[in-house]
Design a protein around this nucleic acid. Structure first.
Lengths: 233, 233
DNA sequence: CGCGTCCTTGAACCGCGTCAAGCCAGGTGG
DNA sequence: CCACCTGGCTTGACGCGGTTCAAGGACGCG
């Protein structure tokens, strides 16, 4: 197994804990946290899993998904390193979604009571967490709107904008830092693999992407325009 | 105008402020809050409106909606008395949804800086607010799932379950405590008035509802079964 | 070289939204 | 008091978008 990364010596600039806790608190948290390494495809938690704490991604990428009757997955949220995971479960220990590693990932875990202590003793931390939740809530609501009202074309465009936002592109090749199957893209967009293929063909014709199998070079400005046009009218 | 309800003498058992603040704090908040009465159809805030605080419904009912290109509304959230409204905007003053009164409503408003002070000086309040946000987030994510994967039949059933959850039914007549047009039901369910009519007919045939124009008597157990069946398989 | 997996493409099907016509009820004015 | 009008409800017909099904092709790996 890998060496555990201790909070005081952690270099993540994105980590919520790292950004909002005092050195003293970092030491306490570090002592009380566990850290696990997951391989691509591993479950961080499953539907019905009993949660008794909060996860923080130290490195890697994770998707939170919900499964429907036919076994199709719908991606509810994507997250890269430095993000909070499983914070929805706070105060209610049963959760109805699965969290799956999209690549090799390292995840820290803090138990609820430790976390609660931080909140109660560090009001600034708590207030910043409230702001974080507010932002998350707005994002999720926006996704409600998207899934309910967008056409497939718009949903696929939005999926790439979202993927780019979270994982970014290789600055040299401009290809997405994550290779996904048509099925996986469909799960993010909320449609079928066949529709994804068709849309990718259209986008290719329109110079919005260049596709070489799973390597996809994005014309982000163009894709964002599709999403923006939806928002405006 | 109506008389302002002061927090210390407010009798709402549901109000978040009332439940989690000390008498001292209640006095401070009451002094700094404003209270407005809205009639059915009035906007509490509009898309693009600049927000500088948080609302609490003292009495009444409100819907938070988003409008699409054709002018159709999609209900994102319903709330009755004692609820928090506009908390998503915290830390980011622009909002992309409209809040509209469903009936005559009284709403309290607390400015952000006052609210922030409460959070920073009352960690318990802040922590409970975090729990509230976590719950809200789970609810919203569930709606993402519903809108993305449910059939119209299931969505209409879910709309009534949701309406019943928030506004309840008259214990005598078992009719919904809120009369809505077909269009308004469609906005909650995420479909069209015509589809609502068709579903209501089906539900009536199946003894899941009894409809007398806008008066609708619900067989909640039956409707919940439809939603539950979707969840399970 | 052969097998399996994923991608692609076409075709058929179907659920749902749209359009339009008719209906019913409540309100208004003669 | 009734005739008319208006707005919402109902119902049927239609068409489109998107999912599903199926077959063929490309690629990778043993």
């Amino acid at each position: 197994m890998h060496q555990k990364v201790e909070c005081p010596s952690c270099t993540s600039m994105k980590c919520f804990i790292k950004r909002h806790c005092s050195p003293d608190q970092l030491a306490v948290i570090s002592e009380n946290k566990t850290q696990t390494t997951y391989s691509k495809g591993d479950f961080i938690f499953r539907e019905g899993y009993r949660m008794h704490g909060i996860h923080f991604t130290n490195m890697g990428g994770i998707k939170v998904v919900t499964t429907n009757s036919n076994g199709n997955e719908q991606v509810v949220r994507l997250l890269s390193d430095g993000n909070i995971l499983g914070h929805r479960v706070l105060g209610n220990d049963k959760y109805y979604f699965n969290a799956i590693a999209l690549m090799d990932s390292k995840v820290c875990f803090v138990e609820t009571n430790v976390f609660q202590d931080i909140c109660l003793n560090n009001p600034e931390f708590a207030y910043n967490l409230i702001l974080f939740y507010a932002l998350e809530l707005r994002r999720t609501e926006l996704r409600v709107k998207y899934l309910a009202q967008m056409s497939v074309r718009e949903k696929v465009a939005e999926a790439f904008v979202y993927l780019n936002e979270v994982f970014g592109t290789n600055p040299k090749t401009k290809t997405l830092n994550l290779k996904l199957s048509r099925q996986e893209i469909a799960d993010v967009a909320g449609t079928t693999p066949e529709q994804v293929t068709r849309q990718l063909k259209d986008f290719d014709d329109e110079k919005l992407i260049v596709r070489k199998k799973r390597e996809i070079r994005l014309n982000i400005a163009g894709l964002e325009k599709i999403v923006l046009d939806f928002k405006i009218e």
